[in-house]
């Protein structure tokens, strides 16, 4: 047990150090990523002003006021910082394709577990650097959070939705990557996923804005937990009794994708054949 924990700890530490090499570039890149928020602010400012016929204060779209909208976009950045997994699925598929996956068949290390630790380290390194630009931008934009900090319960729900968002994103993308056992090249599949996830996760706009048939569709998909849900929780758009239900559904999706990734791994390995060294 101790040996095992030690192995995992070493993997985590190495991955963390590896990630912290380019921290300056990293922080600058994160700050740049907030630039599109500026255009979003002005776009929605103009839209709300137009709806309110000249006054922003009274205007509302789907229960969102103008400050809500800006706060929403900022919060989805936080949500995405947890749930997005750049290069995970394509990395898994590549390892399958070029045979690197063989090492997990020989060594007593579980591949999904290894990937997970790597990802946690990646994320930890990312947060430790990105917290500065994030804090700066949120401080500058504090005026848009008109309701101030939410109550402790909501805050706890927000934090858990973020962590669950990480798990969901991880197992979902791992599952997509493991499809590589059958297709070898998953980039077009991944593209379709990214396309839908950008539009239907709430990254592009609050999902409440979607008209009738679409909002039902979004409720049936796991994508909304990756960006929309944490932000909606923070802004108090989810009622207390619905909160528990929604978190439950999110956990159910995670469990589903854990089993799916296990199943795909098992079936995939049994049909995999590796040649050469």
């Amino acid at each position: 047990m101790y040996v095992r924990a030690h192995t995992w700890w070493t993997i985590l530490r190495i991955a963390l150090e590896e990630r912290l090499v380019y921290r300056g570039d990293f922080a600058l890149g994160t700050l740049m990523r907030f630039l599109p928020i500026i255009t979003q602010i002005f776009l929605w400012w103009a839209i709300f002003e137009s709806i309110g016929s000249g006054s922003v204060e009274t205007a509302e779209i789907a229960n969102f006021t103008f400050p809500d909208m800006v706060a929403y976009y900022l919060l989805t950045m936080v949500g995405r910082a947890f749930s997005s997994m750049p290069g995970l699925a394509s990395g898994v598929a590549r390892q399958i394709r070029d045979g690197e996956i063989k090492k997990f068949l020989i060594q007593p290390v579980d591949m999904v577990g290894f990937l997970m630790l790597n990802r946690i380290a990646h994320k930890l390194a990312y947060y430790s650097v990105a917290i500065l630009p994030f804090a700066l931008v949120f401080y500058l934009c504090r005026g848009y959070f008109t309701a101030g900090w939410p109550d402790p319960l909501t805050l706890a729900a927000f934090v858990s939705s973020l962590i669950l968002g990480f798990l969901l994103g991880f197992f979902l993308e791992t599952s997509i990557g493991l499809i590589g056992f059958w297709f070898l090249e998953v980039s077009s599949l991944l593209f379709v996923y990214m396309l839908f996830s950008f539009f239907l996760s709430g990254h592009m706009f609050p999902l409440d804005l979607l008209p009738e048939p679409w909002n039902l569709l979004v409720d049936l998909l796991p994508l909304k937990y990756m960006a929309y849900f944490p932000a909606a929780v923070f802004l108090g758009k989810v009622s207390q009794d619905e909160l528990m239900l929604q978190l439950g559904i999110q956990v159910a999706w995670i469990v589903f994708f854990i089993f799916l990734s296990r199943y795909l791994w098992k079936r995939g390995v049994s049909r995999y054949s590796g040649f050469g060294g």
Partner: peptide
């Protein structure tokens, strides 16, 4: 498909704008 999504975003916005312009008086 990315382009169509871009269009979808604005269609949603104009759905909520309800025949009003994108910026007041523009």
């Amino acid at each position: 498909s990315w382009t169509l999504m871009n269009l979808g975003f604005y269609l949603i916005i104009f759905h909520h704008l309800n025949r009003k312009p994108l910026a007041d008086g523009s």
